[in-house]
């Protein structure tokens, strides 16, 4: 992350210079600066383990449930490593989904199938595909690296009594992303995301994500306990309910080794 910090510092000094030189910050620069500051505030968590319940709701309100344990390892100078282990539905119990995200280029993804003890490489271009039948796509749940988007600050806005910035995110990988853009509401005080609107490749409003029940951990890191995603086009929705956030649990590289997934719990 050192190189990145240097770059960030360079960027900030450039911004400061421009302001002192009397040139106004462009909306693109301001959008990027907000994303960079949010990233800076989230650095150094080391590793994180969470238990998650995913509730899928169809148009008629029928629900089905998945229970997942999620493990994240922060990686210096690159995207995070992420391991999701399924506990239910019972027939996929023990299935594990491993992602090494990268700041540039495609992520590396593997699927571990416990019945055959087989590790399958997954095509990570599948960004827009549904994650486990939910309204979250692979790109929604993957590590949000700064380099994956370009930015444009739109406006300030009060959302549920909180002063927020509203910024447009354009995917860098336009060919494989399911979106033409995202619009992100972040509060000015703690840089927490409260709402995201997703626009499909035809520019129509596809989904809206709202986040709630934020709690601060280790005196620094804010995490939401409830994520609610609504798909406006098919009428379905998905809730992600997080519990037992644990940080700095001592996870190591080898806990994210694709050959060791049969022991992952």
């Amino acid at each position: 992350m050192k190189l990145f910090t240097v770059l960030t510092a360079a960027l900030f000094s450039a911004v400061v210079l421009q302001i002192s030189a009397g040139r106004a910050e462009t909306p693109e620069e301001k959008g990027l600066a907000i994303a960079v500051e949010a990233e800076r505030r989230d650095q150094g968590f080391g590793d994180q383990v969470t238990d998650m319940v995913m509730i899928l709701r169809n148009r008629n309100g029928q629900e089905s449930k998945r229970e997942i344990t999620n493990k994240i390892l922060e990686v210096k100078n690159d995207g995070d490593k992420n391991l999701s282990i399924f506990h239910t539905p019972h027939d996929v119990r023990g299935t594990a989904f491993l992602t090494f995200s990268h700041k540039s280029g495609d992520d590396d993804q593997w699927l571990y199938l416990p019945a055959l003890k087989r590790v399958k490489r997954i095509n990570s271009r599948n960004k827009s595909g549904s994650f486990m039948g939910s309204e979250f796509s692979y790109e929604d749940i993957s590590s949000q690296e700064i380099e994956k988007y370009t930015y444009k600050y739109l406006r300030d806005e009060i959302l549920d009594g909180r002063e927020c910035t509203v910024v447009k995110y354009y995917p860098v990988d336009q060919e494989n992303s399911g979106y033409s853009r995202q619009v992100v509401w972040r509060d000015k005080k703690e840089y927490r995301i409260w709402k995201v609107e997703y626009y499909d490749r035809k520019n129509s409003h596809l989904k809206t994500l709202t986040l709630a029940d934020y709690q601060q951990y280790l005196g620094r890191y804010w995490r939401a306990k409830k994520l609610h995603m609504v798909n406006h086009q098919n009428g379905k929705s998905t809730d992600l309910l997080y519990k037992n956030y644990r940080f700095q649990t001592g996870l190591k590289e080898r806990d994210f080794n694709k050959n060791r997934l049969q022991r992952a719990r």
């Binding site: 238990d51 229970e67 344990t69 506990h87 239910t88 019972h90 037992n244 719990r265």
Partner: peptide, 13 residues
């Protein structure tokens, strides 16, 4: 116990 962090698990089909 359906979640991680538990010491003992039993399941099957």
């Amino acid at each position: 116990s359906p979640f991680s962090g538990t010491a003992f698990e039993l399941n099957g089909s």
